[in-house]
Design a protein around this nucleic acid. Structure first.
Lengths: 247, 247
DNA sequence: CGTAGAATTTAACCGCTGTCAAGTTTTTGT
DNA sequence: ACAAAAACTTGACAGCGGTTAAATTCTACG
């Protein structure tokens, strides 16, 4: 499964990588290096806001030095997977986006699989999924899809992209943007910080929970909200992670 | 999970790999390169007979050139994972054996998991397991062990090593070494050839099948055997793969 | 016993993805 | 506006796991 640099390069030399036709046909467009996939994954998530991803952020997320990331970004640009404006930042090309959404599909599907089938806790699944996402193939992906009955969200509530890269419909809004008295259902907890997830999970603040926003204290004060269980008081940084669907 | 050569080397430079203490404590001794693990796996299987593994066989199994394998074997010898006698062959050191049995445990457990939980056919699981075996960690391994209720054999009937490297007890004998009239239960089909497995599976000749050896035709002739379903006539090459437990 | 042929190793090289150090560009704060 | 700081890129290099071609060692056979 193309993990050795040498083997990879040789394969690419012999057989010039997947053609556009392959990709359009839904073949294994994800047949690229592990490293490449991780870069595309990170860039995709950093550019969700619409802004381009800067080198240092990418490097930090991947645990490499900015110089290393800079070099790699250039290579990805040469391969037409990212659009790079030197000293400014990177965004994904359509091709890069297709690959990224596909790997994210696999990542989130794996997270759900690890949670539902293998009974890992929701704060544990990201790490496992990360290790596995570049090792599974389309057959495995499809099999999970069947076993999980075509899921649309990972355990944290992130949307699972469809195979064609589109996203399922959602009506998620940020909890802290709502006004006091709003009632709704938690749909997503947007972090991969294991500790925060563990804490919020213990509080029952995970997708599906019914909550009512009681108060947002001014000047960065705590957010107070009510579940069927109890009243919670959360710091801004945690409350920011919560997305709800308003009742 | 350490797939980039660069990252790996750096990691090893910073943190000088698992110590003997780590290994004894049952920590993640399998924290080595993918490539290394595949080499150890192959060498283990080639040396099961007691003879040492020769370079060309190793290279063939791994899909690399003999020269490449030769270089790599030297590195593994430097790392005290294999015992190398130049121009003669390689065997595993105790350390290499520990790692190899551990990765084989994961491989076979994965095969069973893929078969039982993900409903892949028995001739499909080897490929998937091979891709995954170097990406899972101990927690995943342990979780499979629980879900599968501490299994002792993979779908083909190979023994799943225990975590300490020992093998479960077995009373498997080669079918073709038995004399006509022997009755028994198929315990193992010793091949990873997908086509052969598919065929034998379609014939019902898989672990658990009750069979009676009818006749072994001389001079390389066919082997005739009887299951509860029908009478089978197998070529020598296929019959050789079958191991049974005599009734 | 010597030699042809097979197996193996060595040498020189490559591509990938990193590192660190140094140089360049952009941003920021006064 | 301009200097300091931050961000980014470039250059020189390393390690891994491969390649091919050439040299070496082993083996088997007449």
């Amino acid at each position: 499964m193309s993990k050795q640099a040498g083997a990879q390069s040789t394969k690419n030399a012999t057989k010039p990588a997947a053609t556009e036709a392959d990709i359009a046909a839904g073949h294994d467009e994800v047949s690229v290096n592990d490293a490449t996939l991780h870069y595309l994954d990170v860039i995709y998530r950093l550019t969700l806001t619409g802004e381009s991803a800067n080198t240092t952020d990418i490097a930090t997320r991947l645990g490499v030095t900015p110089s290393g990331a800079s070099v790699m970004l250039k290579r990805l640009a040469d391969r037409k997977l990212v659009l790079l404006t030197p000293y400014k930042g990177a965004t994904l090309t359509p091709k890069g986006t297709r690959i990224a959404t596909r790997i994210i599909r696999r990542h989130r599907m794996l997270e759900l699989f690890l949670h539902k089938v293998m009974h890992f806790e929701w704060h544990e699944v990201d790490l496992h999924a990360h290790a596995l996402e570049t090792s599974i193939n389309e057959a495995f992906e499809d099999r999970m899809d069947i076993i999980l009955d075509h899921p649309t969200r990972c355990p944290h509530g992130h949307l699972i992209p469809n195979k064609d890269g589109t996203l399922p419909e959602a009506h998620d809004v940020r909890l802290i943007d709502q006004k006091s008295g709003t009632r709704g259902i938690v749909r997503c907890v947007d972090t991969d910080n294991s500790d925060w997830l563990k804490y919020l999970g213990e509080q029952g603040l995970k997708p599906g929970a019914e909550i009512e926003l009681k108060e947002i204290a001014p000047y960065g004060g705590p957010i107070v909200l009510q579940t069927t269980q109890k009243t919670h008081s959360l710091g801004r940084n945690l409350a920011e992670l919560i997305y709800v669907e308003v009742a």
